[in-house]
């Protein structure tokens, strides 16, 4: 079984929103129709996005850290949003585990958005259907694109390579290795949704310098330079001439 997913490295995400804009650009120009965008240059810009980058501050000033946190549908392995849909418009693909909405079947009742604990689904207020991340299902299998471009738009655009894409069920894939070796975790594990997307924690590279590295305890003379017989203390000669 394949389960495609994103792995997002919070350690390197700089919060530039390149993934947000490239996602919107790709998906609003696609065959599925536009994603609404009201007052884009006015005081109250609002619209539909599949992906958003949020910012959190951890700690209390001055001891704080900024965490940029990209958030999109996590393509849960046990998605609570799918069984509640009354029309069958929301479904999870058997072949690759992508959770999709059929925009032609959706009646826009909004029930699935209530059933997603992550707020990953947004009702398009113009088209009146539910929208969410498709993992660029219309890119990743497109034979017209060069092999290395068959990736979600957000992954392509990320300048720091904070977004990895692959099959999390294949233990040797780049994403599985990253999750395994860098402590990848799932969001809100308490609800048993088994999100396929994972996040890599922030890690600080620290150099540990111990005191014994600063003072040379292996130098009993506590001094550099040539040995002097004027010094008190045990000398090599004391031992050897004895």
């Amino acid at each position: 079984m394949t389960q495609l997913a994103l792995v997002i490295d919070l350690n390197v995400c700089v919060g530039c929103h390149a993934c947000v804009t490239s996602c919107k650009q790709w998906n609003t120009s696609g065959s599925a129709g536009t994603m609404c965008d009201d007052n884009p240059y006015a005081a109250e810009p609002t619209g539909t996005f599949f992906n958003r980058v949020q910012t959190f501050e951890v700690g209390t000033f001055p001891d704080t850290e900024t965490v940029h946190f990209p958030k999109s549908c996590l393509h849960c392995e046990d998605p609570p949003c799918v069984p509640v849909c009354p029309t069958g418009a929301s479904y999870k693909r058997k072949e690759d585990g992508i959770v999709l909405v059929d925009y032609d079947k959706c009646i826009g009742c909004g029930y699935c958005s209530w059933a997603c604990p992550y707020g990953a689904r947004e009702l398009d207020e113009h088209e009146k259907v539910m929208k969410k991340c498709t993992l660029c299902v219309d890119r990743i299998y497109d034979k017209d694109l060069p092999e290395q471009e068959r990736k979600p738009a957000c992954v392509m655009s990320c300048p720091t390579s904070a977004r990895l894409f692959g099959d999390v069920h294949d233990p040797d894939s780049e994403v599985s290795v990253a999750i395994r070796e860098k402590g990848g975790y799932a969001l809100m594990p308490e609800w048993g949704t088994l999100p396929a997307n994972h996040y890599l924690p922030r890690q600080k590279t620290k150099l540990h310098i111990h005191d014994d590295k600063l003072t040379r305890v292996d130098n009993p003379l506590k001094k550099e330079g040539r040995l002097s017989t004027d010094e008190d203390g045990p000398f090599l000669e004391d031992v050897t001439t004895w």
Partner: peptide, 20 residues
């Protein structure tokens, strides 16, 4: 967000005019 800390504050939600 998976960060173990008691003091976490949101600073931006990725949209200024609100959203769905």
């Amino acid at each position: 967000i998976g960060v173990r800390h008691n003091q976490i504050q949101q600073k931006a939600q990725g949209a200024m005019g609100g959203s769905f």
